[in-house]
Design a protein around this nucleic acid. Structure first.
Length: 296
DNA sequence: TCCTATGTTGTATG
DNA sequence: ACATACAACATAGG
């Protein structure tokens, strides 16, 4: 689920825990979530500490704790299926997908993740940890310049726009749905090689990247309200989904390693793009519509 | 049984 | 060394 706006929304779910002491810490005994992290040190440090603030950048969250003037830092990445939540009451028992539980007097702050693709990081020290300060410039900041995007498109000249937008080193916080939304608004086909764009097209890509990121933070980050039907988002997974601009059927196929929705007529494929055959396979199972030809 | 899933990373290849 | 493509990770649901 979580991309830029969703991550900001999940961060706020722990707001009820702010300013209150942590009475106990539960860490799941067999969990991939803590790979590379000292679970024991984390538990010892956070027990008796107070959560003083939190922040979200890209798909990463930082929670700052303090215990007797000593700062501790907790990092959370939600992966594909991670969520943060609060459970009210004093008799909470961790479920099988609950990996980290911070117990407070009247509630628990919980990190759950069914698929274990998420991650928890821990750091003890006076300053914010490197994995936080070394994040690339935020898309919504002034540091995210047209020049940065132009240089990146040139360096990744042969990669598809879809895969380039998913590269967190330059587009921090962009995920599958945001990438599709950006390319659809920019009228750029996801299979276009990044190096094939004109100056004007790069500028459009940059602008729409910033626009979608700002809107996602505004519309999802604050209260996760439903996006307008004028967005691609509400149509991209629907069977028989139609482009809200052209009214024509959207195409769904794997581009840049991820399922991608794009609008024929609006987003012109590059000449190198192999056209998929969208006919039904005889005897194909219902619900599994079209299978693609493989080209020799 | 086989396919999919809003993500990242390790590995193979050029 | 660098860029690119893709399997693997773990679990649930259609």
């Amino acid at each position: 689920m979580p991309e830029l706006g969703e991550v900001e929304w999940y961060r706020k779910q722990w707001d009820p825990a702010l300013g209150l002491p942590v009475l106990g810490v539960f860490t799941h005994p067999r969990s991939r979530i803590f790979r590379g992290t000292d679970k024991k040190a984390l538990g010892t440090a956070l027990t008796g500490s107070t959560l003083i603030r939190s922040a979200a950048r890209a798909k990463q969250m930082l929670f700052a704790f303090r215990k007797e003037e000593k700062p501790f830092w907790l990092g959370v990445h939600l992966g594909m299926s991670g969520r943060l939540r609060i459970e009210t009451g004093t008799d909470f028992t961790a479920g099988k997908h609950d990996h980290l539980v911070l117990v407070q007097e009247k509630h628990c702050a919980i990190f759950e993740d069914m698929r274990h693709f998420g991650r928890v990081l821990f750091h003890a020290g006076a300053n914010e940890p490197d994995w936080w300060t070394d994040l690339p410039p935020d898309i919504v900041s002034d540091a995210f310049t047209l020049d940065l995007v132009t240089a990146f498109c040139h360096r990744r000249a042969k990669a598809s726009l879809k895969s380039v937008l998913l590269m967190q080193e330059r587009f921090p916080g962009i995920g599958n749905w945001m990438a599709d939304e950006i390319l659809w608004r920019a009228e750029l086909h996801p299979a276009r090689p990044a190096g094939s764009l004109s100056e004007a097209e790069i500028k459009t890509l940059w602008k729409e990247t910033r626009w979608v990121s700002r809107e996602a933070l505004k519309r999802i980050g604050s209260n996760w309200s439903r996006l307008p039907d004028s967005w691609l988002f509400n149509h991209r997974w629907a069977d028989g989904g139609k482009c809200p601009k052209t009214g024509k059927a959207l195409v769904r196929e794997k581009i840049g390693g991820r399922t991608t929705a794009w609008s024929p007529g609006r987003q012109q494929p590059p000449s190198s793009f192999k056209k998929a055959a969208h006919h039904l396979v005889k005897g194909g199972r219902p619900g599994h519509a079209a299978k693609k030809f493989s080209y020799p």
